[in-house]
Design a binder for these strands. Structure first.
Lengths: 344, 344
DNA sequence: CTTTAGCACTCCGTTCCTTTGAGTGCTAAT
DNA sequence: ATTAGCACTCAAAGGAACGGAGTGCTAAAG
């Protein structure tokens, strides 16, 4: 089923042209391309073959051909070449977030924003999910009687706030004592360990205090994971640009789909921790995205992959460009995070 | 320029009908309404008058009439009656957020979400801007050398995180000492005061420490104000439902406009701290919203107004319903916040 | 055996025209 | 003052005609 070189060249030209123009491409335009010394008739024959092989589709009998998902797959695997980034693009990407120190949330949001601005598609950035965050500080702040605010600070610089019940007789002093004790005892422990160690080592107190400490452990365990399943989303509107065959209904559905963050999270997660991954149309496994592609890249803290970012747009996106951008941005975000967080 | 009772009745019927159907209303449908014992001809005459007076508009010579902004204004001021909420609606609105204790952010987000779900329009909820938040705790957490994370906890249960520079020689102990000292000294002070008092009372240290303390003061001052200018937005997509005369371009512009949060913030702010306020079309002062209306309500903590929530949708929205919903929700949010925060 | 020129055919998108029907304004009768 | 009646307007929907881009096939040329 392998294609001869000429078929490959033609297929590639078709994909390139279609990505550029968005209109079905006919044999004539290709034959006019000086790099082919073939008549349109010859090209037509080849195109017919390519269609039989499942690489091309015809919207209507008398229209040009459009690449199928299979063609894009081949294109991305074997033909695509990363495009060089323009100076402007590099400038934008390298400038962002560089000079100011910011919270993790802000960094992620800005990353997504830059991504969507440069690509003009919708950008998704998964929060880092390092089980390796280390505890910096725990503070229980008394609220109304029976409630306390739990502030967990990790080296990820994130202070997530949530509220737990505490025994009514537990005063501010007691809460402070506990905070300090836990902070000291588990200082610099990875969050994944803190939970188990607390359950183990504080078994005695655990029983005395009823549910309080177990609640606290739960809260703390989910604290670094509070980032889990969270993503930053930017440029959802860009979805509206795309359906050129635009009926507003489809646009609405797309928008709605994109804004379901947990479903988007799964999409990113499914793409796996590969350096760069491209999922095309049907490969995404969701009808609504059947003519969308998702390009993802994994970013690292130090050498450990901790999250995925991606861009979702029409299948006819300029893959070379998008891949280059994601490659750059994932490394950029990685180094920002690494600088920001890791000085263990 | 006052209208006789019959004109009023007719105008009202037109507005009601148009809000319901969305199509220009003609004289015939009105004459069929049994509550008028008039022929369509008579009604036509009245409608012509109403048009001359600026209450009605004709999309085309031979179409029915459509209410003008002026008509909506009259309607809202004098004719509209709040509609009763359905059981289901009340159930949804009273159930939300009630059983779980959550952070402020989550409460605001859910409020917006409920609002947009019930009304099917776009909901905006301004973060509470009480200058009355009181300091609970300040914690400086050392990060990399020269950086510290500032965690400010107020009785609003919010821990906002931001990073400041600190002198390189300032260690964890020193930071801890400062944290504790400030926390104690200004415990339960209103945040608006903390800033000035610190600048005043710590003038000496201020000079020694260079920019560190001024940075800290800035950060703390903006901490409760970090909520300022922030809004929760929900249901922006619903904008797409609305332009029935839907060209996708206009939809895009609307979406883009709605997602400019600072501009939306100003809109809410401009509506002022009234119990309920309705701005119709041109009254919003933005061309893009010329056929939208904004209904806002103010919510309170205790008896003090601290924020505004609103719903933005087409001018032909069912005002009675929307006003009822906003009235209910603003009170509901108010009591949630009051319970959550105020036990001074 | 491969390539190409030529031709008939298909079908989409556009334009232009007609029809339809809802709605109006005006006039004359009640 | 109200209403019936009528001529008029205009947007929206339907349909015919056309142009054009593109195809598939066949037969000739290389």
């Amino acid at each position: 089923m392998d294609l001869n070189p000429r078929k490959l060249r033609i297929l590639r030209a078709i994909v390139d042209e279609y990505i550029l123009s968005g209109a079905p491409v006919g044999s004539k335009v290709l034959s006019q391309n000086p790099s082919f010394k073939l008549s349109s008739a010859t090209i037509r024959n080849e195109m017919a073959d390519l269609e039989d092989l499942g690489y091309l589709e015809q919207p209507h009998t008398s229209a040009g051909r459009v690449p199928s998902d299979k063609a894009y797959r081949l294109y991305v695997n074997n033909m695509m070449q990363r495009s060089n980034l323009t100076e402007d693009e590099v400038k934008v990407m390298s400038a962002y977030c560089q000079n100011k120190v910011k919270g993790l949330d802000a960094v992620m949001r800005e990353t997504a924003s830059v991504l969507s601005n440069i690509t003009h598609y919708t950008a998704l950035v998964m929060m880092p999910e390092s089980g390796t965050n280390r505890l910096r500080h725990l503070q229980l702040v008394p609220l109304a009687e029976g409630y306390a605010l739990v502030v967990v600070v990790t080296d990820a610089g994130v202070a997530r706030d949530s509220v737990i019940h505490v025994p009514a007789d537990m005063g501010a002093d007691e809460l402070d004592r506990i905070s300090r004790s836990i902070s000291q005892r588990y200082y610099n422990c990875r969050m994944v360990e803190v939970g188990e160690r607390m359950t183990r080592e504080m078994a005695m107190e655990l029983q005395e205090r009823g549910t309080f400490l177990t609640d606290l452990v739960d809260t703390m365990e989910s604290a670094p994971g509070a980032n889990a399943h969270r993503i930053a989303l930017s440029g959802a509107n860009n979805m509206l640009d795309y359906p050129a065959y635009s009926d507003i209904d489809r646009a609405r559905q797309l928008l709605a789909a994109v804004e379901k963050k947990d479903s988007m999270y799964r999409l990113l997660k499914n793409a796996g921790p590969f350096e760069i991954c491209v999922k095309i149309g049907s490969e995404l496994g969701q009808d609504i995205f059947s003519d969308c592609s998702l390009v993802t890249a994994t970013y690292r803290i130090g050498s450990m992959p901790v999250g995925t970012m991606g861009v979702i747009g029409p299948t006819r996106m300029p893959y070379g460009k998008v891949v280059s951008v994601l490659d750059y941005m994932s490394k950029s975000l990685g180094s920002i995070l690494t600088n920001l967080l890791e000085e263990d």
